[in-house]
């Protein structure tokens, strides 16, 4: 039945209403499913390491540390300053290694190269390696995110 000035029949209206309810019901079931399958991810705000472990590094050498679920690379410069990187290639996420002889970072997956400061200089990597901020406070070596804010590694 359709009223004279109505846009749709009573049946269409009721079917639409029912369909809408069903859709909403389905969405309310789907929401917790989606919430469940995406686990929370926590990138650390900072990592505190005992400085004693890293004090004796030679110039132009690297050491590894754990940056959440990613490998971190700590590099000592020739002048004794420390630089920290997330040791993950910006191309497709492989772990990189440091080659002290060539003073370069290298990703074996697709032949990607970075210079000693983490700048992408060859192969497919689109961006420099992510830098982290290093500071030394007493006996602690503190590594923080650059700018202090959360960086999505997209």
């Amino acid at each position: 039945m359709k009223l004279k000035h109505s846009l749709f029949t009573r049946r269409q209206f009721l079917n639409g209403l029912l369909g809408g309810w069903m859709g909403a019901l389905l969405a309310s079931f789907l929401y917790p499913v989606l919430k469940f399958v995406f686990p929370p991810t926590r990138e650390p705000d900072q990592v505190i390491l005992p400085f004693a472990d890293f004090r004796d590094m030679g110039p132009n050498s690297v050491n590894n540390f754990l940056w959440g679920t990613k490998p971190g690379i700590l590099r000592k410069n020739d002048d004794g300053a420390y630089l920290a990187f997330v040791g993950v290639c910006t191309h497709l996420d492989c772990n990189v290694s440091y080659l002290p002889d060539q003073r370069k970072f290298f990703c074996a997956c697709h032949d990607g190269w970075y210079d000693e400061d983490g700048l992408n200089i060859g192969g497919p990597p689109p961006r420099p390696l992510r830098r982290l901020v290093v500071s030394i406070e007493g006996e602690d070596l503190i590594i923080k995110r650059e700018g202090g804010e959360r960086v999505e590694d997209s």
Binding site: N95, V96, F106, A108
Partner: peptide, 24 residues
């Protein structure tokens, strides 16, 4: 080892090689 650098000469299964090479 999740923290180790990627080994050299990594390859996917042969049926992904043409995509792998394209990306490279």
């Amino acid at each position: 080892d999740l923290m180790a650098p990627a080994p050299e000469g990594i390859k996917p299964e042969w049926y992904f090689l043409f995509l792998f090479q394209t990306l490279k």
